[in-house]
Design a protein around this nucleic acid. Structure first.
Lengths: 346, 346
DNA sequence: CTGTTAGCGCTTTCAG
DNA sequence: CTGAAAGCGCTAACAG
């Protein structure tokens, strides 16, 4: 492996001149510049990342805190990772994957002290999150995909769960549904202050009340079996239910099955909408599912770019950005039975 | 951030002694050792990864080459990543995600020259793979999840596609099926020498011939639509077809739909088995799918551990390990119609 | 516009 | 068993 010294000799200049040429840290005459770059690719030279990082105190490496959640990783999470990695690389950064127990601030402490990474992108934030508290007090650069209860002075990007819920309810109301169910994440997620569970629920209850609708809610584990029984409970609690909103993809197959087992058909008798979902998932189901799709790609990318911008110093304005999911209407949502019979009688 | 020098002063020893104590590179008296470690955690000291890497020429960072394949990432790929990251961390390594165009040896070249990573784990290998050729000639440490045409002297771990295919066919034959279809990956994947496509196909054709079965094969893009039309083509080509083996999860929903649209029911009239699939996926379908499940967790973990072992020098024996998928029988496979009518006449 | 040089924090000979 | 000191390859003052 050639070193900067080799390049310098080859180009007949001082080592530091090569450094300046590479980093553009100070003006270099066109002529020298040319010679240096010629020497560089003649030797196949690439600056040594470790040495550069050590000397400059900036490794150009960031970490994605990738928690091993019980809920399980899905396609959406995969997209976070991929888009974060892409964004990092496009900006000349490396992305290390740091998988941890979600509440483990200790692990994070280690990572920070190693001096390996310039900053971290944190996923799966809880309302009260030790990791964030730690980062905050340590003054270590970070951005969040998600947010806590108090985000003052923090950079984050998140799904606008409220807006998403509002859009979905509006869609259903537009179809004539007035008795709507909501299957939230599991109860322990909710109690642990997991943001999506908390915020979607609040907005569901608010919106339902504001519109004089009949809303029923249940918590639901991330499995088809749980979805199956939860939707049955929902229907038992409100026999007039004609639509359900599901927060977790993994419960959806169970929901569909339960509905079918009752001899009902989708969407004629019953509508199903999945929120914070993905097209890939939606199109796997029969019928295909109307979904509010998570802007996973944007979240991963923006979270990463936000961090990098912060590291590069320039832009230091704190910002919290919320992006709603995009509603994509497919086969699983349709007019309510009441509306349909009105029309046919008319 | 305290440095090693700080620790040394604090413990009243020389800097180098601290280094030796940490790395266990040479014997240290119990007493000094104790003082050093006391000083370390009093100061909250963690060795600087960059400095250590620069001095020792071993960064303890490895990269996972994570290609942006057209076929799209799925749950199986996600599991590779997660299990690789876990394995790396458990062994004191960092894992950087390096997403590249699959055939781009140039990108890889850059990565290697940067001196950031000690080795790489390569995924999505093709029979002829530039990246592998490059790594090979450069003598850069690597392991493969997958394999090429010629793996002499290479460390790899892969799915045993042949064995997997054999197991699945045996399952179907055991159920009385004699006309079996196979939906492979897309034709361009096959032509590009994508291992799974090549090996599964070979074994399918062999096994079918060896057992006097009627086998029909089609290539199929990774989408429900493609699955829908491909299975119809398959049935057109062999009207007696009673079972199909699918290589790509994403086509499966289309297959189910096509079968249903023909008024056939699964598994009574037709059996479907997905290979190199996952439980998560299988349980999302209705009916749940009989699958040969990819040992994704093991592959990611073993690929990583193999690399680390190689880096640590000790174990230098080359090994190629093949793991078959595990057959999990669910609702989508059952006795062939012929067998069923035999039984009922009997 | 270019050169010299002192570190960055650690590993690892080389000497005791 | 312990120290001293020479780098690892680069950045960034400090001097022209």
């Amino acid at each position: 492996m050639p070193t900067m010294q080799d390049v310098a000799r080859h180009a007949g200049v001082a080592l530091s001149t090569v450094s300046y040429a590479i980093n553009g840290t100070r003006p270099i005459s066109e002529e020298t510049r040319r010679r240096i770059f010629a020497a560089m690719d003649e030797l196949g030279y690439r600056p040594n990342a470790l040495a550069r990082g050590l000397a400059s105190k900036r490794s150009r490496i960031i970490a994605l805190l990738f928690p091993a959640v019980k809920r399980g990783m899905g396609l959406t999470e995969l997209e976070f990772v991929v888009s974060a990695a892409d964004a990092a690389r496009e900006n000349g950064y490396h992305l290390v994957l740091w998988s941890t127990e979600i509440r483990d601030a200790e692990e994070l402490q280690q990572l920070m002290r190693q001096g390996l990474v310039d900053g971290v992108v944190v996923m799966e934030i809880h309302d009260q999150d030790e990791r964030i508290d730690l980062l905050r007090t340590t003054d270590f650069p970070f951005t969040m995909i998600g947010r806590c209860a108090d985000n003052a002075g923090l950079n984050f990007i998140d799904i606008d769960f409220g807006q998403t819920m509002a859009i979905v309810i509006a869609h259903l109301v537009g179809l004539g549904h007035t008795h709507i169910g909501f299957l939230n994440h599991a109860v322990d997620e909710f109690e642990a202050g997991y943001g999506p569970a908390v915020r979607a629920q609040n907005r569901f209850l608010e919106t339902v009340a504001a519109n004089g609708l009949h809303g029923t809610m249940r918590y639901c584990e991330a499995s088809p079996q749980a979805g199956y029984s939860a939707v049955n409970e929902l229907r038992a609690a409100d026999p007039d239910l004609t639509a359900v909103i599901a927060m977790n993809d993994r419960a959806v197959p169970g929901i569909l099955r339960a509905i079918a087992d009752q001899g009902l058909s989708i969407p004629d008798d019953f509508s199903v909408v999945a929120i914070v979902s993905s097209a890939r998932f939606a199109e796997m189901m029969t019928p295909t599912i109307t979904t509010a799709e998570a802007p996973a790609y944007e979240l991963g990318r923006l979270g990463t770019e936000m961090l990098i911008r912060q590291l590069e110093g320039g832009n230091n304005d704190i910002s919290g950005k919320l992006i709603p999911c995009k509603l994509v209407i497919r086969e699983s949502s349709g007019e309510s039975p009441a509306r349909r019979s009105e029309l046919s009688t008319a």
